[in-house]
């Protein structure tokens, strides 16, 4: 290594070092620490935090035997489903409509669809909570349509249906985000390809499915990864949309299960360690799903290339 290389290496470390240190302290250390905690009976509030014991896989065993975990897991999978098969396709279609100028006032629609991104999640949660409450706007519409003044929108009350209005709110909130990603990528596409397809007699659906979708497969994959990661750590919107008690229990997702366990369940003496196990499960499931989406993405790309 000559003097110039050494100097460049020093500059490299000087540039990367601060960021790397921050990452190690703020991201990597807590993750590793959390993994360690999940194998203990850690509770710093119990007896001053001095008494920790190694308990092996006890927290994970308890977690897997807890029906609340599986209930929260199912709800989380629903959120992932809504994100991947709801927000992304709708965002893509909306972006395509705007890109191909199929509607007038594109800028207005673009701003309106993206608007929820400018609002605080808590504000959005409270807004939808009010919309779905007793005699709230949605109930009033049902009462007008059915002519029954006592009719109520009660999907939020039942474990089987609570995720439907939540899924709707999730789509309303995040579709604009994916629309902007797709729109930005569509706008930097070479329009000659679309023109060439048109000259060859391709119809609008053929242009969309045979030209646009394959070209944006990378963007779709990145969006899917973002959607999965966001869905599994999603806490704020569902927390704000539901009230403590039956609604929140019904709509419980893994981060809420983790929060309620670690912060509220005083009857569980090992609740912080248990909470760590749940948060590690969230990370593990995220990695699995992202690997799966990468695998599917590669297969699809291979198919396109073939």
């Amino acid at each position: 290594m000559n003097k110039r290389d050494r100097r460049q290496l020093l500059i490299f470390f000087a540039m990367v070092g601060p960021g790397l240190l921050i990452y190690l302290f703020i991201v990597a250390y807590p993750v590793i620490y959390s993994v360690w905690l999940s194998f203990t009976d850690f509770n710093p509030n119990r007896g001053g935090g001095s008494s920790w014991s190694f308990v092996g896989f006890l927290q994970y065993k308890t977690m897997l035997e807890d029906p609340n975990f599986w209930h929260a897991f199912n709800n989380n999978m629903f959120v992932v489903f809504v994100s991947v098969f709801g927000q992304i396709p709708i965002g893509f279609i909306l972006a395509y409509i705007l890109y191909r100028r199929m509607v007038k006032a594109q800028h207005f629609f673009q701003a309106m669809i993206f608007l929820p991104q400018f609002l605080s999640t808590i504000v959005i949660g409270i807004m939808w909570k009010r919309a779905f409450s007793a005699d709230g706007p949605v109930s009033r519409i049902i009462q007008l349509v059915t002519g029954d003044p006592t009719a109520q929108f009660d999907l939020m009350l039942y474990a089987d249906t609570v995720m439907i209005p939540i899924g709707f709110a999730l789509i309303w909130m995040y579709t604009g985000f994916f629309m902007i990603i797709f729109l930005a990528n569509l706008q930097k596409m070479n329009t000659n390809m679309i023109e060439a397809a048109k000259i060859d007699g391709a119809t609008e659906p053929q242009i969309f499915f045979r030209v646009i979708v394959p070209l944006l497969s990378g963007t779709i994959l990145v969006s899917t990864v973002l959607a999965i990661a966001g869905s599994l750590r999603g806490f704020d919107l569902i927390f704000a949309m539901t009230t403590q008690g039956l609604q929140r229990n019904n709509a419980m997702v893994l981060p809420i299960f983790m929060y309620q366990t670690a912060f509220q369940d005083y009857s569980n003496q090992m609740r912080f360690a248990f909470g760590s196990a749940i948060s590690n499960a969230i990370v593990f499931i995220s990695i699995l799903l992202i690997m799966l989406s990468n695998f599917i993405g590669k297969k699809l790309n291979a198919g396109e290339e073939g």
Binding site: L157, Y158, G245, L246, N249, Q264, D265, Y266, S267, N268
Partner: peptide
Amino acid sequence: LTGAPNDALNAGMQKIASGQ
């Protein structure tokens, strides 16, 4: 009463009121 049994009681009463 605190923790899980209290949560179950509170949510349980909501279930009773809504016929679940």
